[in-house]
C-alpha cells in the first residue's frame, strides 16, 4: 500500500516536472506568434479585468503601506531633496530665460506644441499589475491594442521614460521597464549631446548605465540623460523613442576620461510606484529631432 502510494507520488511529481520543462522548451522554441504566446495573451486578456478590479479595491491598502514606507524613507531624503532643490532653483532661473527664447524661436519657425509630445498621440493608462521578481521588470496596464497601443511603443510618466510595450492584447498590455535587462534606449546627455545607450546597470535593481561612451565624452554627476530619437535617415533604423524624453540623472561616473568610463544613472520616473503611464502611440517624423 505504501509502495503504491510512493510510486503514485513519484509518477505525479515526474509528470509535473516534465510538464514544466516541456512548457519551457516549447516557449523558447516558438516565435512570438506561437501557440503558447497566444495562450499567454489570451490569459492576460481574461485576467486583466480581474487585476484591474483588484487593483482598484486594493488601492487603499496600497496607499496605507506606501504612506508607511514614505514616512520611513522621508527622513533620509530630506537633506538630498534640499540639495536638489537648491540645484533646481538655479536651473529654473536659467530655464525660464531659455523657455522664453524657445517660445520666440518656435513662433519664428512656425512650430507649436503639436509638433512635440501631443503629436505622439499619448494614451493614458492605469497600472493594474506589476511583476514580483527582481529579475523581471514589467507592469500590466489597462489599455491595449483596442486603444491604439502596439508592441514597441514607449511608455512615459510626467517624470520621464518608463519603458516600452512588449505585449498588447485588445484590453491590456505589458510594459517592460527600462530597468529590465531586455530593454536598451538610444540616449544623449542633455548638457553636451554625448550619445550612448542606456541599459540596466550591473545591479539591475533599479539603476541604469549609459554605455558606449568614449574617453573624450565628458559626463558629470547631476547631468541629465534624455532619449536621443532617430539619428539615421533610413526609415528602417527608426528609434522607438521620441527625442528629448527625460530618462534619468547621472549619479556617478567611474574611470572618467577612459574608454572604460562607467556612467551610472538614476531614473527620473519612480518605477516601483507607478499608478498612471502614457503610451506614445504615434511616431511623428520617425522620432527624429
Amino acid at each position: 500500500m505504501y509502495d503504491k502510494s510512493l510510486r503514485r507520488r513519484r509518477v505525479a511529481l515526474a509528470l509535473l516536472v516534465a510538464c514544466s520543462l516541456l512548457l519551457l522548451t516549447v516557449y523558447f522554441g516558438e516565435s512570438a506568434g506561437g501557440g503558447l504566446h497566444s495562450v499567454q495573451r489570451g490569459a492576460l486578456e481574461v485576467l486583466s479585468p480581474i487585476q484591474e478590479g483588484a487593483s482598484r479595491v486594493l488601492k487603499p491598502a496600497r496607499d496605507l503601506a506606501r504612506w508607511i514606507g514614505d514616512t520611513v524613507d522621508a527622513k533620509g531624503r530630506v537633506s538630498d531633496l534640499e540639495r536638489e532643490n537648491e540645484q533646481l532653483r538655479r536651473q529654473a532661473i536659467a530655464g525660464t530665460d531659455a523657455a522664453r527664447q524657445n517660445v520666440q524661436l518656435r513662433r519664428i519657425l512656425g512650430l507649436d506644441d503639436a509638433a512635440g509630445l501631443a503629436a505622439t498621440r499619448p494614451v493614458t493608462a492605469r497600472v493594474i499589475g506589476q511583476s514580483p521578481t527582481v529579475w523581471y521588470g514589467t507592469i500590466t496596464i489597462d489599455k491595449g491594442s483596442g486603444d491604439g497601443v502596439r508592441v514597441g511603443q514607449p511608455a512615459i510618466t510626467g517624470d520621464g521614460l518608463v519603458g516600452q510595450v512588449t505585449t498588447a492584447t485588445p484590453g491590456s498590455a505589458i510594459v517592460t521597464l527600462i530597468t529590465d535587462s531586455r530593454v536598451a534606449v538610444s540616449a544623449r546627455v542633455s548638457e553636451n549631446g554625448v550619445r550612448g545607450v542606456v541599459q540596466t546597470s550591473a545591479g539591475g535593481a533599479g539603476d541604469l548605465r549609459l554605455r558606449y561612451t568614449t574617453r573624450s565624452d565628458r559626463v558629470e554627476r547631476g547631468w541629465s540623460v534624455v532619449t536621443a530619437g532617430t539619428s539615421s535617415a533610413a526609415d528602417r533604423l527608426q528609434s522607438l523613442y521620441p527625442p528629448g524624453i527625460p530618462i534619468g540623472r547621472v549619479t556617478r561616473v567611474t574611470d572618467a576620461g577612459t574608454d572604460t568610463q562607467q556612467v551610472e544613472i538614476a531614473p527620473y520616473a519612480d518605477l516601483r510606484r507607478l499608478e498612471l503611464v502614457q503610451v506614445l502611440t504615434a511616431r511623428p517624423n520617425g522620432n527624429r529631432p
Binding site: V17, L21, L23, T25, Y27, Q40, L47, T138
Partner: peptide, 12 residues
C-alpha cells in the same frame, strides 16, 4: 501567464 513571463519557469 498573467505576467507574460517565460512559461514554465515559475511552475518548475
Amino acid at each position: 501567464l498573467a505576467l507574460v513571463q517565460t512559461v514554465g519557469m515559475s511552475s518548475l
